[in-house]
Design a protein around this nucleic acid. Sequence first.
DNA 1: CTTGACCTTGGAGTGGACTCCAGGGTTTAC
DNA 2: GTAAACCCTGGAGTCCACTCCAAGGTCAAG
Lengths: 141, 141
Amino acid sequence: MLTVSKLAKMVGVGPDTIRYYEREGLIPEAERTESGYRVYDEGAVRRLRFIRGSQRFGLRLKEIKGLLEVMDRGLCPCGHASDLVTARIAEIDQQIAELRVLRGDLARLSEDVGPDRCTPGVWPCEQELIQVGGGEDDDGP
Amino acid sequence: MLTVSKLAKMVGVGPDTIRYYEREGLIPEAERTESGYRVYDEGAVRRLRFIRGSQRFGLRLKEIKGLLEVMDRGLCPCGHASDLVTARIAEIDQQIAELRVLRGDLARLSEDVGPDRCTPGVWPCEQELIQVGGGEDDDGP
DNA sequence: CTTGACCTTGGAGTGGACTCCAGGGTTTAC
DNA sequence: GTAAACCCTGGAGTCCACTCCAAGGTCAAG
């Protein structure tokens, strides 16, 4: 019989996290001892590992909850999971693309701006950072 | 003479954002009209453009505040800015690397798991998502 | 003179996933 | 028998950069 912090240790989270997952409905309300302590079995370990594993793949608790609800109805969540994963891949590609652009901008910036670039009375980085056209001035309705 | 929302429009932010920056000390307390309205000049436009420009480069308000404080002391912030930018580049490289790993994992996952992969009584994605070794069991102190 | 668009303030809410707290009760080890 | 280490609860705090709110004051157009 597992107490909350033994379970926590087994899956590599804090006890508060488990209580939080319970509050959020990701795991069912735990059985209790006479004195009110939560008790868990191997099923809880599996469930928590599933949650943590899904998180490692960048799924959000809300989405994981959806997956678990499908499983709790006895259905296979693979189709649903596959959709989530496909969507996440697209998001990641998007994110990587954005980061690459940003990285390019930063690299250019760091060439132009440095400790040895300072000119009396002028702050090169200010110009670089302001970047003309910074204001998205509305061009009238 | 610019009111808060005219200034806001000029730099492409909401008026609340400007008041927020003031509260946070990124811009000095604005001059006021007799009736207490904030009034701004071109300097405020420059300052806000600097803030927004720095944000586009992924700098955090706290860091930007640091840059502005250097500038307010009459010094060139380029060295400091250059450090921040270098650090940010490293962070971004790290982030891109992590995202690439994650993307690879997800791609593999989505090959293994799909609507047509379901086997009666078995949920392929559960195994895939659990990933053996999920628990960072402590191996003793 | 009225209407509506602005301005003021302090404070609360957002999202995501925890994390920590006080003020109790319980169990375990010595 | 007592001290340490656990458990419980509800609620608040964390980070970040806003964003929205109510309740009131002010200003410009017609």
